[in-house]
Amino acid sequence: MMDSIRIDRFRIRPYDLPLRRDWRSARGGFQRRRGWLVCAETDGEIGFGDCAPIPAAGTEDPESAESALLNACACAPGRSAAEILEMLDHGYVETPAARCALECALLDLLSQAEGVPLRRLLAPDASDVVPVNGILGALATLTAADLQQAAEAGFRVVKLKVGVEEPASEIGRMLALAPFLPADMRLRLDANGAWGHDEACRILDQLAGLPIESLEEPLRIPDSSRLQALQERATFPLARDESLAGLSADVDLRGLGVRRIVIKPAVLGGLRTALDLSRRATAAGIEVVVTGVVESAAGLWPTAALAAATGSRLPHGLATADWLAADLGVPPRLNGADLSLADRPGSGFNPNPEPEPEPEPG
């Protein structure tokens, strides 16, 4: 089928979306989400992708992403989807966010042509709903009311950014909030590589007894042997996320030093690469969680399709749509702590109408 689909053109449209509140982490933050809506067109049909680079998470910088997208726009007309996918696999390794967006647009088209939802193109037994964790932002801004609101919404796992303040202050905040945690709620912590090894050891010891679901990227330098030592010390999974960027396809995943990996398709270069990594991790006994990069609905739909295709029933980090004050289209529907995915062919994304051009003066 991919050989029979000829691409008329790629088209890209820049966007600039405000957040409802600042996104903060140990690697910095942002107040707006900028990127490009990618459209692959053939015979009147359109497939969509989202290029939303975020270098702090392991992608290329925006300038490199835009250059890669423009190159694809110049090279695509008249080529088959199969030819373009091969081009992406060999020539776009250094620009994973652009490669992911272009691939998503092609796979959206292909799933439409096959008459199946994108998740079932990736895996015929993919589920219709994706469990998700709540995303509450930085621990420094968290209140007891935030925890109660998340519990009332149905979340049993909530994610917090740590490593933003001094460890003693953050441990104090968690201990102070612990009495307000609902009995069945657990905390998923993300340090974004904030700590040295000795510091991480002390923090793990101080977290003992708290309802921690997992801890992502505890070490500033993610050495596998030191991560393994930390994992043996912890009573919950440690996870690697941005340190997976550039991971060799033949690496032994059992040597990563952690019990879990966090998969971002925009960092890994697309849905196919991410799904392959997920399957290898599962075979190696490593847990898998899929997260996005606070992208638009155009990126959230295919990322949710990937999560459904992995078969992992852990809560995924995809409840990000509410962080955006504006979007390119309607995101997947959040029903309690589950995303409900569309049953129609394609990724599920439909764009908002493009704004009318301003009239010429005079």
Rank of each mutant, 00 (worst) to 15 (best):
L300G: 02
F30E: 02
D61Y: 06
G317E: 13
R344A: 15
P222Q: 00
D89Y: 03
R32Q: 14
W195H: 05
M185D: 09
M1T: 13
S225K: 05
G172W: 06
Q112M: 09
L268Y: 06
P302M: 06
M185C: 06
A304L: 04
E287T: 00
A178Q: 14
E86V: 11
D108L: 03
A319L: 04
A183K: 09
A176K: 12
G317T: 12
E287K: 07
D223N: 14
T141S: 14
D89I: 07
P351H: 14
N133A: 13
M1V: 09
L118E: 05
C39E: 15
L244R: 12
A183M: 07
D343F: 06
A337V: 09
P55E: 14
S169Y: 04
S214M: 14
S340Y: 09
R9P: 01
W301I: 02
I84V: 11
L175E: 15
L88V: 01
W323F: 14
P167W: 01
E360H: 08
C75S: 03
L177W: 08
P222W: 00
D89K: 10
G28L: 04
A297L: 09
G362T: 01
G78W: 10
Q231F: 03
C104F: 01
D184N: 15
W23I: 02
V164W: 11
D276M: 03
L339G: 15
A305C: 15
G35H: 11
S340H: 15
A284V: 11
A151M: 07
F236E: 10
L109H: 08
R279N: 06
